[in-house]
Nucleic acid binder design. Structure first.
Lengths: 336, 336
DNA sequence: AAGTTTACGTTTTACGTATAACTACCTCCG
DNA sequence: CGGAGGTAGTTATACGTAAAACGTAAACTT
């Protein structure tokens, strides 16, 4: 049902109410105290309602030069993690009269032509995950205020950053496994170039190096259950003594590792302890439940939005990483 | 770093290139064949690049009355299902010069004030999942062209619909379980008012009624692993003979049912066969792997976008439901 | 009574773009 | 030589809104 007869404009409302367009704008914009009489305002509101008037936001945006809408750029949405980030960001945004729109860096669509060229129509700013790497260059092209999530505070070219304290999470994981007595480690690392994964590798290596007699190997996999399955199977089949602890970059990789362990006839945690990172629903759906690092995704989103609001208002954004918690469950135990 | 000096406009580019604003618009809009000479066009392009000119899309939208952007309204993004729907929709959209923006009906944010009022600035149309119920009333308020996903073809007030053939999927599940010899069924139904779930209940009941001696009970749960766990535990503890087959409205519910079965000391599939619906990554991450109905989420999104394009161009949208496939795995077996 | 404030509006303008309508020049053809 | 047609632009306008600038009459102040 194409647009049919065009939508009513503020001018139509004005005519119906017998006032000028400006009066309509004042009344509907709630700026009429002492400028328009109550009866007139009432007439305008009634006419607007009668005609089903809705302001043309393209016009409003053009006029005001701002939109109260921000874009959240995330990597492919294959877990609930970024859904929760969105929820947090959207809540804070709503409290300040802002809207949030999602731009998932689409696989297969290609970052070819300035991906979000269209959406950018109505944007005051951008919150971007460092994992959505391909979209970043396009973002820098526009001069929009930007907040980066989980990005190198040094290398972000002055953009504000909001980070989870991943380093601390990995430290806790290492501590936990070391105290259980593990010495031979395998790191199942995400095959994605992003600061947040570099931190995991660096911190794990740093912590283990400090303990004499430990061994750390690393294997890389794309972030998917099947990718993790393949990589883990290969790594477990490698020569030399088998690792007793498998540290995964996130829960999804851990789920793939579970399958690999099952196929190799290894029992979890008796033959192999496994840890994840994220604490998705998946973590407690698998058996045994996964020892993992809980990330507060909603708070992450809230802080991201707050930081962007700060940037927009020329205030300094809040400092400090977001704390994380080690969730000890059934997938870790002393080595046999 | 607030906006600082305002962005360059097409007029600035015109001045820099020594031409009129109209010429800039012609050149950059690729409408200059035979209207502007090649050298001049080149000068304009260079000036635009020099100044880092990017068109103000609010102005363009206002001028053109359309935006080549559509909104995809989905329920909370807690599985990869709608992420794949998005991918499919975005690909088709890109082929036609459209962009897609996501609006996840946010939990806790509340549908209070016309949720996507802001985004609507730049929308030509909307694709909405019937599961995002709370956002729907707001959508009908705007007079945007609308395509509904998984919605009652009769009750959609003339909006185009694109549906998965869920009824066929449920029929296949029922057939599979019946042929294995099951007669006592439990239906773990999603506690969400949506046509797509009504279909599941109706079709399962219809198919089982046709077979004498079958028993079908139903229990409802919110779509979450924990919700399903609680509901299933209660249902399994109910008096009377235990069901031997558990039909879940989706994979997430099935994952919760797995936990409930484990807690009740029931082995899958020997003591209890379980089926899901969606075929998420989760389905093969759990042990045993889940017998479920595979939905082609990407195709779903493609078809949704194609239907919306049809509506926008006043063509009749493609007809016919999207076929689904039963994936038989380790969670179903004959009852003992 | 003269000046000032208040109440209630209206007129006008600008935001930046796309495009229809117009102009001016040159070439070519009969 | 005159006009038809092509080339290479320019000028002018509209999209719908917000708000600054401007009136105008009545009420109030001194």
């Amino acid at each position: 049902m194409a647009r049919g007869s065009t939508r009513p404009t503020s001018r139509d409302v004005a005519q119906a109410a017998g006032v000028s367009q400006a009066a309509v704008s004042l009344v509907l914009g709630d700026k009429w105290r002492g400028r328009v009489s109550e009866p007139t305002a009432q007439r305008v509101r009634e006419a607007a309602h009668e005609l089903g008037y809705r302001p043309n936001l393209a016009a409003r945006n053009l006029r005001l030069g701002r939109t109260r809408t921000v874009l959240l750029v995330v990597p492919a949405l294959t877990t609930e993690f970024f859904a929760e980030v969105y929820t947090g960001a959207a809540r804070v945004a709503a409290e300040h009269g802002f809207g949030v729109v999602l731009y998932p860096s689409p696989e297969g669509v290609g970052p070819a032509k300035d991906p979000f060229a269209s959406a950018q129509a109505a944007l005051d700013g951008v919150i971007a995950s460092s994992m959505a790497a391909d979209a970043l260059t396009a973002i820098r092209g526009d001069q929009l205020p930007l907040v980066m999530l989980d990005s190198d505070p040094e290398g972000s070219l002055g953009a504000a950053t909001v980070n989870l304290d991943i380093a601390d999470g990995i430290r806790q994981v290492a501590e936990h496994l070391l105290s259980l007595g593990h010495r031979r480690f395998l790191h199942l690392a995400a095959d994605v170039p992003s600061w947040t994964f570099e931190v995991r590798a660096r911190e794990l290596a740093a912590r283990l190096e400090a303990v004499p007699g430990t061994d750390l190997r690393t294997t890389h996999a794309p972030i998917s259950i099947d990718g993790a399955l393949t990589a883990t199977e290969a790594a477990l089949a490698a020569p030399g003594p088998r690792p007793t602890a498998l540290v995964c970059d996130d829960d999804k990789l851990a789920a793939g590792a579970y399958k690999a362990a099952r196929r190799a006839g290894l029992r979890i945690p008796d033959d192999l302890s496994i840890t994840g990172l994220d604490d998705l629903g998946l973590a407690t759906a698998i058996d045994p439940e996964l020892t993992t690092v809980r990330l507060d995704a909603e708070l992450f989103g809230e802080r991201g939005m707050r930081a962007l609001l700060a940037v927009l208002e020329d205030r300094p954004p809040e400092q400090g990483d977001i704390p994380v918690t080690l969730m000890i469950r059934g997938s870790t135990a002393p080595p046999r």
